[in-house]
Write a protein that binds this DNA or RNA. Structure first.
Lengths: 99, 99
DNA sequence: TAAGTAAATTAGTAATTGCTAATATTCTTG
DNA sequence: CAAGAATATTAGCAATTACTAATTTACTTA
């Protein structure tokens, strides 16, 4: 159990960041290129965005594929989606989308 | 949406700690006094346990009541339970208990 | 090959976290 | 009130985090 708690805490630490949540919410709607994400999330600088994406990918939450000079990120671990749905259901007034 | 992400990140930060998860998992099974928790979670010192409980209470996740010199903590925000159930379902091989 | 765009990386820094050790508070019992 | 138990609080420190600024790498097009 202690191991499980450690694993869960690690995962939650990855989720526990406003900008990463915004990135994930955007990617739940569908795959996006880095620059596409950048347009949707103008408060995150290019560097920060890239670092967040790398972290999410390192934890197996995202996957990426390259096409030309664009890199498209998508949700790799779909369990995350349900976690976020539950969080949204309870802590965002039941809303699902942002616009 | 940004506000919601900020709120969710704040909540997740509280959850994103191994010892706090263990405390919550124990309290999901039922209310416990501080010393009762201490016995179940011998890896957490008295001081650390108290600080974690205070943090969880400050965020409205726990409630406490005093009886004599014992203080009993319990889950106040039951939405947390479903969040933890979903996490456990997906990230702990579907197990529910620890003993 | 030069110029431009997309994305990643690096170094540095301020803020936050989680702990320990020590002390304080609160209650109970004699 | 003194002694002991249950819990909280405080100060301080090492580790981690999230960011910015600058640079670099990889690709495309002319």
């Amino acid at each position: 159990m202690e191991d499980k708690a450690k694993k869960m805490a690690r995962l939650l630490k990855v989720l526990a960041n406003e900008n990463r949540l915004l990135i994930l919410c955007e990617l739940i709607r569908g795959p996006r290129t880095v620059s596409g994400l950048g347009e949707k999330l103008p408060n995150i600088t290019q560097s920060a965005l890239s670092q967040h994406l790398a972290l999410l990918k390192a934890h197996g939450i995202l996957d990426s594929s390259k096409a030309g000079q664009n890199i498209t990120y998508s949700i790799a671990d779909h369990r995350i989606e349900e976690v976020i749905f539950v969080l949204r259901k309870h802590y965002c007034g039941g809303e699902e989308g942002e616009g």
